[in-house]
């Protein structure tokens, strides 16, 4: 078993307990309904998650841990890529909302391509033009959806 399982199990137990004792009482009703109250299924699912996570933690503790394994399963490169990817998508979403579909989309595509090492200016120009332009026409003319 990997140390990352120990970390995941512990976090899930803590989140499960928080859900069970704080979130569910505030966000669901314990009464009403025949057979099942509105709170019953989410509470049951949370209890099962806590129980299985506890088993995962026990399993991780009993098993021999590999010497060089880490509690965080992703490498530095993978974690950085996730943060950059998420930041680019978030920035594009904000641009999409406040600047508009075409500019937001073009900025997103070009920035991801540059991040992935693309330096061919023809591709950098052609890809956003075709994809954003095509999708704009498809969404607004064919589906009649209003875009920002």
């Amino acid at each position: 078993m990997k140390p990352s399982d120990l970390a995941a199990g512990t976090v899930l137990i803590l989140l499960g307990l928080y859900t069970l004792f704080v979130v569910l009482p505030a966000q669901t009703s314990a009464t009403g309904g025949i057979g099942l109250a509105p709170r019953d299924l989410p509470a049951l699912a949370t209890l099962v998650v806590i129980g299985l996570s506890a088993l995962l933690v026990v399993q991780s503790c009993i098993a021999k841990l590999p010497g060089r394994a880490s509690f965080w399963p992703a490498s530095w490169h993978e974690t950085l890529t996730m943060f950059v990817g998420f930041a680019l998508a978030l920035a594009a979403t904000l641009a999409f909302q406040f600047v508009g579909f075409i500019v937001g989309g073009a900025v997103l595509i070009v920035s991801i391509m540059l991040f992935m090492g693309e330096r061919n200016w023809l591709r950098l120009l052609f890809t956003p033009t075709v994809v954003v332009g095509g999708m704009y026409l498809f969404v607004t003319r064919l589906l009649h959806v209003t875009v920002p």
């Binding site: 990817g85 998508a89 979403t93 999409f96 997103l108 992935m116 693309e118 994809v131 969404v139």
Partner: peptide, 22 residues
């Protein structure tokens, strides 16, 4: 790079089309 950038853009457009809101 072309595939990934285009699909990320399609993800955002697809999510917008689904509900019509941000």
């Amino acid at each position: 790079s072309v595939i990934v950038a285009s699909v990320v853009f399609l993800c955002i457009v697809g999510a917008y089309i689904e509900g019509g809101t941000m």
